[in-house]
């Protein structure tokens, strides 16, 4: 990777984070817009970093820890930017950018595997992985939004209003953004998993159900579907649904880390 491209991406993300923080603290519209612009620039450069990596290793950028983390960061940024533009709300940027930055930098610091030519390739496999990582990114975003909801709700309930509470999105908007994010995640994980099964079937002409990743993916899918339903009901809308969303993310985190690294034979990094 060209070091200059890596540094430029880090600088773009870091400046974007700084501008989002200033926006959150002061509410100056111009800084918010610049934050978005720099996030966009970071996304473009990050894409070229991934592309360069792919060309260098002659494979897709998710065959090692480096690639999976970097792609995750990129998709998280992409999902957030989509939500920001759709809901016209920039205040959460300051809370999401640290994750993007950490994943990008950590990916770079992680040792790159010496890759043997992968047997996993082709568009079906690529869709399977890309969509599932996008789903994880969307679930991460919904977790950040739900946590923001819970913090703001606590402040409002306890009548502790600092600078920040006046700047955060309204509670109902946070709920809607979180639900949008979960919906993206649900759609992606469903289609992505279907692609995975299709790919396995094409490869071996039979399904294998021995991988713990299948079970946890199914659990994640069910839990988020339950959240999506409950978040609109009388008893759960509001803080309870947000707590459930945060809990669900713990399962996602478990799936992305413990299950991938130690339990699954076929899903090491995604």
């Amino acid at each position: 990777m060209h070091y200059a491209l890596f540094i430029s991406t880090v600088v773009a993300y870091a400046l974007s984070l700084a501008l989002y923080l200033i926006f959150l603290n002061t509410g100056k519209a111009l800084t918010g817009r610049l934050g978005t612009l720099l996030l966009g620039a970071g996304l473009v450069m990050h894409y070229f970093v991934l592309l360069e990596r792919s060309e260098g290793t002659h494979t897709v950028p998710y065959h090692d820890l480096y690639g999976a983390m970097s792609l995750f960061g990129w998709l998280l940024a992409l999902t957030y930017l989509g939500l920001e533009l759709y809901h016209r709300q920039r205040s959460v940027g300051a809370l999401v950018l640290p994750f993007i930055l950490v994943f990008f930098v950590a990916a770079h610091l992680a040792p790159a595997d010496r890759l043997s030519p992968p047997d996993a390739h082709g568009p079906t496999f690529a869709f399977h992985v890309a969509l599932n990582i996008l789903a994880y990114a969307a679930f991460t975003l919904s977790c950040v939004l739900s946590l923001t909801f819970l913090i703001e709700e606590r402040f409002l309930r306890n009548h502790r209003l600092g600078n920040i509470v006046w700047r955060l999105p309204p509670l109902e908007l946070l709920e809607r953004m979180s639900q949008s994010s979960v919906l993206i995640g649900l759609i992606c994980i469903t289609i992505g998993t279907a692609f995975g099964f299709l790919w396995v079937y094409r490869l071996s002409s039979k399904y294998s159900f021995y991988d713990p990743k299948y079970a946890i993916t199914l659990l994640v899918l069910i839990l988020y579907a339950v959240y999506f339903r409950l978040a609109r009901t009388t008893a759960w809308r509001g803080a309870r649904a947000s707590k459930l969303c945060v809990f669900n993310f713990l399962i996602v985190f478990l799936s992305f880390t413990v299950v991938n690294l130690y339990l699954s034979a076929n899903h090491r990094f995604f």
Binding site: T26, G27, E152, L156, L161, V165, W166, L168, P169, P170, L171, E172, L173
Partner: peptide
């Protein structure tokens, strides 16, 4: 931030409602 935050009881109340509902 000179005009950013409400400084009457009525406007503070209504602004708080906007924190919840938008």
């Amino acid at each position: 931030e000179l005009g950013a935050r409400p400084v009457s009881v009525a406007s503070a109340g209504v602004k708080l409602a906007e924190r919840i509902f938008g």
